[in-house]
Structures are given as structure tokens and as C-alpha cells.
Design a protein around this nucleic acid. Structure first.
Lengths: 148, 148
DNA sequence: CTTGACCCTAGACCCTAGTCTAGGGTTTAA
DNA sequence: TTAAACCCTAGACTAGGGTCTAGGGTCAAG
């Protein structure tokens, strides 16, 4: 019942609130995804509450197929207060990646919906190609390789 | 001199056309993502051209954050000619996953667009929170007892 | 008939993204 | 004052998803 506002969290509390483990936090710090936190006199890490949001962001970005390195660059966009040109270039690159991902997911969605309605009736499921939706319809070719 | 259409491809050709390595193909076969192919008399694998599409599909699905196991179930949806009930349940589950991914990507997109237009001018980049877009707006975190 | 480009298997190896010890210090409630 | 419940570092270990090597067969061209 402490009435004082908690302005910083221990690693354990941060982890719990973010839904990750303590190890993951230390690992991300090591990787540069989390800034080096303040420390107490005895060496305990102290995190500002925003760290929880940052961790949420990382988790979900990972679920969208971004690697930690890619997420790092996304986070740097926010972190850097200068280097406007870099920001511009990076965001544009990321936006392209994201557009492709969205399109792909929508194509997959269409295919699954078809499977679900048209094809799950009494007909033959094998007439409903999921695969083609992502290969024939999209990306004419465009060598879509590097992820940074 | 054979101008006849190649109805099946060696592993090398398949790999090249799909943009993966030979090892990857064998690995996927091992994992059940690719059906066991025909073999020539001397044991060489022979793939139908559809295998290329299947491999494309796998690649892109991976890029969307699906694991090989998840992709396996997506592919099974297409492969299975029966078990309609399973198809229904699985597709519905996958559709939910996909919807979440799309929403997340759109939120990210919004954030980056803002960064790009509003924030890359002369202002302060740090006013443009990418992170919040994916944490505040989505996933109602029940555990969030913010005692202001 | 040999050289280079393919193919085969089995198993070792690698990178990413954590996860888990081992060994030790701190704080707090009973 | 001691046990639970935290925190620390360093380093070993794991799982997923490949990638590479060794050792060997096949085939087309020169």
C-alpha cells in the first residue's frame, strides 16, 4: 500500500509485467535492444516503466517475423534524436517490408477463408489451393531476400 | 533436343527455382514439409513443378513469423483430402492468428508513417513513439494495474 | 576415360534466441 | 538469525532451422 509512485522497477517486476523472463531481459540488454539501466548501490538493475512497453513491442515484432537485429533498427529509429536522413531511409525500408508482410497475410487469409467456406462443405478440399495464393498471386518475382 | 516440357525437376533445379538450397529441401522432406518425392533408378529425387510453389510458400510464411510446425499444419490443410472437421478448426485458428498479425503490422505501419512524415522534418524524433503503437493500442493486458 | 557438374547418405557443425546452472550477495518477514 | 525471495556474473546448454563435410555414386562432354 505504498502511496509513492514507483518510478522504477526491478528486473523481476519488469520481466513479470512484460511477460518475459529475467534472462531474456539481460540477454536483450547484452544485445543492445534495451539500454543499460540504472543500478542501485548494490548493483541491482532499475528500469523505468517504459521498458515494459519496449519489451512488449519486441515480443510482438518477433511474432511478425522480424529478427532481433531488425527490431533493433526499428527501436533505434525511436531512440535516435538526430540523424534524420537515416531515419527516413530506414523507415521507408521497413515500411516496404511491412507492406509485403501485410499483403502476404491477406492472401493467406483469403485462401483460408475459401477453404473454410467453399471447401469445407462436401466438396473436395484438394481443390482449394492455399499455396498458390502466396506464390502465384503475389510478388511477381522481385528477389525478396535480405532482411537487413 | 527435347523441347518437351519438363514434368519433374532434380533437387538442384528445384532448389534454384525456389531460392533455397538443396540441403534445405532435404531438411524439409525430413521434417515432413515436403512429401517424399519420386526417385529415379539411381536414387535421385524427382520433384513435380508444384514443389517450387510449395517452397515459395514456406519461405514467405516463415517471413511472416510462422514456425515450420505451423507451416506444416497450414500445408496439411491443403494436403488432406478428408477430415473436414479438422480443416475447419485449424483454419479458424490460423485465421485468428493472421488477423492479429495484420493488425499489429498495420499499427507498426502507422507508427513508421508518422515517424516519416511528421517527425523527420525538423522536429524532435523522440516525440514519435513507435513502441507505444504496438503496446498501448493492442492486447489488453489484464495484469496492468497502473496505480498512477 | 577422365573431368566437372550433379546426386546420395549420415552426421557434424553453426547461428539465433534464449534458458539454465554455479557460485555468490542483499533484503525482509517470521 | 535464518529462510524465502530477490538480485548479480559468467558460462554451459538447448531448440529451431538450417549448412557443411566426408565419402561415394552418376552422367555428359571433350
Amino acid at each position: 500500500m505504498s502511496t509513492e509512485k514507483q518510478t522504477s522497477l526491478t528486473i523481476g517486476r519488469t520481466a513479470k509485467q512484460a511477460g518475459v523472463t529475467i534472462d531474456t531481459i539481460r540477454f536483450y540488454e547484452h544485445r543492445g535492444l534495451l539500454p543499460m539501466p540504472q543500478r542501485t548501490a548494490n548493483g541491482y538493475r532499475l528500469y523505468p516503466p517504459e521498458t515494459v512497453s519496449r519489451l512488449h513491442f519486441i515480443r510482438r515484432a518477433k511474432g511478425l517475423g522480424f529478427t532481433l537485429d531488425e527490431i533493433h533498427t526499428l527501436l533505434k529509429l525511436q531512440d535516435m534524436g538526430g540523424a534524420k536522413a537515416d531515419v527516413k531511409a530506414l523507415t521507408e525500408h521497413k515500411l516496404k517490408q511491412i507492406e509485403i508482410k501485410i499483403t502476404d497475410l491477406q492472401l493467406m487469409q483469403d485462401a483460408l477463408r475459401k477453404l473454410n467456406t467453399q471447401c469445407s462443405g462436401t466438396g473436395n478440399v484438394s481443390n482449394c489451393p492455399i499455396i498458390e495464393t502466396l506464390t502465384v498471386n503475389s510478388l511477381p518475382n522481385s528477389d525478396n531476400s535480405s532482411t537487413e
